Simulated assay, not measured.
Amino acid sequence: MQLVTLNPDTINARLSELSALLHACVHDGASIGFILPFSSNDSEAFWSGNVGPAVARGSRLLLVAQLDGVIAGAVQLDWDTPPNQAHRAEVRKLLVHPVCRRRGIARQLMQALEAHARALSRPLLTLDTRTQDHAEPLYASLGYQVAGMIPGYALAPEGGRLDATTVMYKQLPGC
């Protein structure tokens, strides 16, 4: 596995791979902000209209994991914060393709993301995840603490119900 930071040009060049990753995760039930129906065009619009511009502004990192040169996972670090929060960043959209799970990809992406946060002098990381989702124990194993839970926070990907979210944080040592 290889971890690679993408820039606006490489995001555009790999748009179809990024789109396929997000599309597969949403269709596998990931609660990452999208609901079904969710098309490949919807996925491409997210990468080109949301992530690409934020990376171009220099306020977001897009880190991908490659297996044999193919994108198998991704995570984002967003440090577009107000002046009184210049010490923190938000973890966004940790994705691992459903056929590539249980190989340590998510853990390695998160560890690399934390190294980038340290380099940016952003010692406080925050995130939210669907309560009792498979990602929650991963974050806990990486040292993230639960700040609280918000019931009925987001519509489930398949619709029809509201899911709770767990808000988590981590103080990075050595910053």
Score class of each variant (00 low, 15 high):
residue 1 M to L: 12
residue 3 L to D: 03
residue 4 V to K: 04
residue 5 T to R: 04
residue 7 N to G: 14
residue 10 T to G: 00
residue 10 T to C: 01
residue 11 I to N: 03
residue 17 E to L: 08
residue 20 A to N: 09
residue 22 L to F: 12
residue 28 D to A: 15
residue 30 A to P: 05
residue 30 A to K: 08
residue 30 A to R: 07
residue 31 S to G: 13
residue 32 I to T: 13
residue 34 F to K: 07
residue 34 F to P: 03
residue 34 F to V: 05
residue 36 L to Y: 08
residue 36 L to K: 09
residue 39 S to L: 09
residue 39 S to N: 10
residue 42 D to K: 00
residue 43 S to E: 02
residue 43 S to Y: 09
residue 46 F to D: 01
residue 47 W to Y: 15
residue 51 V to D: 00
residue 54 A to D: 09
residue 55 V to D: 00
residue 57 R to H: 14
residue 58 G to S: 12
residue 58 G to P: 06
residue 59 S to I: 14
residue 60 R to Y: 02
residue 60 R to A: 12
residue 61 L to Y: 03
residue 63 L to M: 04
residue 67 L to Q: 08
residue 68 D to F: 15
residue 69 G to E: 03
residue 69 G to I: 06
residue 71 I to C: 02
residue 72 A to P: 00
residue 72 A to C: 10
residue 75 V to L: 03
residue 76 Q to S: 11
residue 77 L to N: 04
residue 80 D to H: 11
residue 82 P to Y: 15
residue 91 V to Q: 01
residue 94 L to R: 01
residue 96 V to R: 10
residue 97 H to P: 05
residue 97 H to L: 05
residue 97 H to G: 05
residue 98 P to Y: 09
residue 98 P to R: 13
residue 99 V to Q: 13
residue 99 V to I: 11
residue 100 C to F: 03
residue 105 I to M: 05
residue 107 R to Y: 15
residue 111 Q to V: 13
residue 112 A to L: 07
residue 116 H to M: 09
residue 118 R to Y: 06
residue 118 R to W: 06
residue 119 A to F: 04
residue 121 S to K: 10
residue 125 L to E: 02
residue 126 T to Q: 12
residue 131 T to P: 00
residue 131 T to K: 10
residue 133 D to Q: 00
residue 142 L to M: 13
residue 143 G to P: 07
residue 147 A to N: 07
residue 148 G to P: 08
residue 148 G to W: 10
residue 152 G to V: 01
residue 154 A to F: 06
residue 155 L to K: 11
residue 157 P to H: 04
residue 159 G to L: 08
residue 160 G to E: 02
residue 160 G to Q: 00
residue 163 D to V: 14
residue 163 D to P: 03
residue 165 T to V: 10
residue 167 V to C: 12
residue 168 M to S: 05
residue 168 M to Y: 08
residue 168 M to G: 03
residue 169 Y to T: 07
residue 170 K to G: 09
residue 171 Q to A: 11
residue 174 G to W: 09
